[in-house]
Every structure is written in structure tokens, then in C-alpha cells.
Computed example of a mutant assay.
Amino acid sequence: MKLRSFFPLLCGLWLGLAMPAAQAERADRDKPMNIEADALRHDEVQQTSVFTGRVVVTKGSIVLRGERMEVRQDPEGYQSGVVTAESGKRAFFRQKRDTPAGAPEEFVEGEAERIEYDGRGEKVRLIRRAELRRYRAAALSDEITGARIVYDSGADVFTVDGAPQGSKGGGQGRVRAVLSPKEAPAGGAAPAAPAPAPALRPSTELGTGGVQR
């Protein structure tokens, strides 16, 4: 059975303990950023590039998709980007998580009207109509929605904020989460066997053909 929880306005939802033993793919930050789009405008002085039209970004296991993306690179080589969706739609984010040897693969997926990728801080911010999902062995495991979700892949922490009451697309100021129960670790102890039934003993109070009262 899945647990459904509702949290108040601007509630921080910390899932580091709910999603243990896995972090974002550690090699992603060192991989090159590959981008495809219909058009590109690059500013060498400002070190910014603006891609427009069916933008697809890959960086290691990270995938970003949207209608427009502005990419910046700081003097130390760290890359950051802001992906925005086409009107009425949402941009997309996906990243593989490191898991122990032999464990099923895990992925984190997110959607929002605006997605901010911070390569230096290893954070992804999902803004407006935000949704984040975790898949384990290709099966949906956990799902959270809110107005703003911050995924800190380095610390393996998710923070979710609700929206002010009455705001557009705010979901009535609530955060919604569906969390699957934590699975027992592989090779765990087997359940204890039931206690044996007591041995039957002959009664000394029964006569021949009699019935014990």
C-alpha cells in the first residue's frame, strides 16, 4: 500500500531518509554538455548561449528537454542552464542515481514550466507546476508535486514548497507526496518460525469410555 501525505504551505519535505543508499550519478558533473536545438545565439563576451526550438540536452546520464535553454559557464568551467517550456507545457529532467552493486537501477525524473540546472552546486530547481518522480527497476516508486522542488543531488535531499493560496496553478497551497514503503534489504533475516504446539499428554482423570469435563 502506498502512503499519501499532504503538507502545509512552504513545507520542506526532506526525503534523504526516504530514499537511502543511492545518490545522483557522480560522474555527470565531469561529462561534456551536448545540446541540440533549432537555433543558437552565442555571446562570447558574456559566455552565454541561448538555444531555442525543441531543445534536447544530455550531460552524462542527465537529460533536459524544453523549448528554450540559456547556458552559462563560469570562469572555473562549471555549467549552469535555465530550461523553459513551450506555453502550456512543461520542461523535462531526468538523471540516473548511483546504486550499490547488484541493486536495481534508479532514475529521478522531473517536470516543471521552468527548470534550473546548477552544475557547481549539483542542484536542479523545478519551478511552477513542479513534479518529481523516482523510478526503481523501471517501476514508479515515489512521486512528489508542488510549486517549487529543489533536488540537491550531491546531498541526496529533496525540498518541496507549496504555493500561496489562490495562486495560479498553486494546487491550493499544498504539497502532495506518494511514497512507497521501504523494501527490506536483500539477504535479511527470515521471519521467525511459529512456536511449536505443546505435546499431548495422557490424562489420569479419564476413565474407560469416560469424557473429561
Rank of each mutant, 00 (worst) to 15 (best):
residue 78 Y to N: 15
residue 84 T to S: 09
residue 81 G to T: 03
residue 106 E to V: 15
residue 130 A to D: 02
residue 101 A to N: 10
residue 90 R to F: 00
residue 110 G to W: 05
residue 95 Q to K: 13
residue 129 R to C: 00
residue 111 E to M: 14
residue 79 Q to W: 15
residue 98 D to P: 03
residue 113 E to V: 11
residue 111 E to C: 13
residue 129 R to I: 08
residue 131 E to A: 14
residue 83 V to K: 02
residue 119 G to S: 11
residue 120 R to H: 10
residue 124 V to S: 00
residue 97 R to E: 06
residue 124 V to C: 01
residue 80 S to A: 10
residue 115 I to Q: 00
residue 131 E to N: 14
residue 105 E to T: 15
residue 97 R to L: 10
residue 106 E to R: 15
residue 94 R to Y: 05
residue 86 E to G: 09
residue 99 T to F: 06
residue 106 E to P: 13
residue 108 V to D: 03
residue 108 V to T: 07
residue 133 R to S: 13
residue 90 R to G: 01
residue 95 Q to W: 05
residue 120 R to V: 09
residue 116 E to V: 14
residue 131 E to V: 11
residue 81 G to W: 04
residue 97 R to G: 09
residue 125 R to K: 13
residue 110 G to P: 04
residue 113 E to F: 12
residue 96 K to Q: 14
residue 112 A to E: 01
residue 130 A to I: 01
residue 133 R to F: 09
residue 98 D to Q: 08
residue 129 R to E: 12
residue 134 R to W: 10
residue 115 I to P: 01
residue 132 L to W: 05
residue 89 K to C: 00
residue 92 F to H: 03
residue 121 G to R: 13
residue 104 P to A: 07
residue 111 E to W: 15
residue 93 F to I: 00
residue 98 D to A: 07
residue 119 G to H: 09
residue 80 S to D: 13
residue 132 L to F: 12
residue 116 E to S: 12
residue 119 G to Q: 08
residue 112 A to K: 00
residue 86 E to Y: 05
residue 84 T to N: 07
residue 109 E to F: 09
residue 97 R to F: 05
residue 86 E to Q: 11
residue 104 P to K: 07
residue 132 L to I: 10
residue 132 L to H: 06
residue 109 E to M: 11
residue 97 R to C: 08
residue 84 T to Q: 08
residue 125 R to C: 03
residue 98 D to I: 07
residue 120 R to Q: 13
residue 126 L to A: 04
residue 95 Q to F: 04
residue 129 R to M: 12
residue 129 R to S: 05
residue 137 A to K: 15
residue 90 R to V: 03
residue 98 D to C: 02
residue 119 G to A: 14
residue 94 R to A: 03
residue 105 E to I: 11
residue 133 R to P: 04
residue 104 P to E: 08
residue 130 A to L: 02
residue 88 G to T: 04
residue 79 Q to G: 00
residue 103 A to R: 09
residue 96 K to L: 09
residue 107 F to M: 10
residue 80 S to Q: 13
residue 125 R to D: 02
residue 138 A to D: 15
residue 79 Q to C: 03
residue 114 R to K: 15
residue 134 R to F: 09
residue 127 I to C: 04
residue 114 R to V: 08
residue 87 S to A: 13
residue 130 A to R: 01
residue 122 E to S: 14
